[in-house]
Amino acid sequence: MLELRLVQGSLLKKVLEAIKDLVTDANFDCSATGFSLQAMDSSHVALVALLLRSEGFEHYRCDRNISMGMNLNNMSKMLKCAGNDDIITIKGDDGSDTITFMFESPTQDKIADFEMKLMDIDSEHLGIPEAEYHAIVRMPSAEFSRICKDLSSIGDTVVISVTKEGVKFSTRGDIGAANIVLRQNTTVDKPEEATIIEMNEPVSLTFALRYMNSFTKATPLSSMVTISLSSELPVVVEYKIAEMGYVRFYLAPKIEE
């Protein structure tokens, strides 16, 4: 028996919009810790890890650890039927091949349930150890989204370099080249407008912009994004979900031939 009641149902809607273009089918895992997912894109270049902690739900009942295979496009279709202010409850019965999403309007005058078929997904689960990163950049998520979009009109890849000068996003394409440098800026009115650069060592890595742009679909989840870089590791682009957890995207770098 599974029953997860999320008062801020819009969070789940936003999570699905953030990941459904990157991953088609995925297993959602439910345990005492929370509702989570780990999945790679079809080419195994990017990985998404989601955690919605059990404490973030108004009611969280998960009698035993369970993994439920879902088609994210179908799940998104159903969640789009929930209002932005609706309370969403996810319900499942042991051994059932379906899951139910219940949507309640804030005034309780409309209650809908949508039953979705589950699927068997044979997916590989990866262990991602805690790592020391050479540089961690915290910046407004809308600014990161803007940079990725702007650069992708010039080139296909972005070089992200962190030095003591700041963080530089560079691209090059048939029509020319572009460089965008952000300096640390903590003298802003609101903390969510700050750019904070922690650097242990200078680092420079190249990534496919197509994936970066896909990650920025998570922008509505958080006003800030954290980009963690290390020369031997995939970049981690993290959007924190207030009070609940996170969506983290891991992207393997491109290297010189």
Binding site: H44, V45, G127, P234, A252, K254, E256, E257
Partner: peptide
């Protein structure tokens, strides 16, 4: 323009 690495080259199956 370079070789695209894949995630499974970095992290192991559990």
């Amino acid at each position: 323009k370079g070789v695209q690495l894949i995630i499974t080259e970095f992290y192991r199956s559990t």
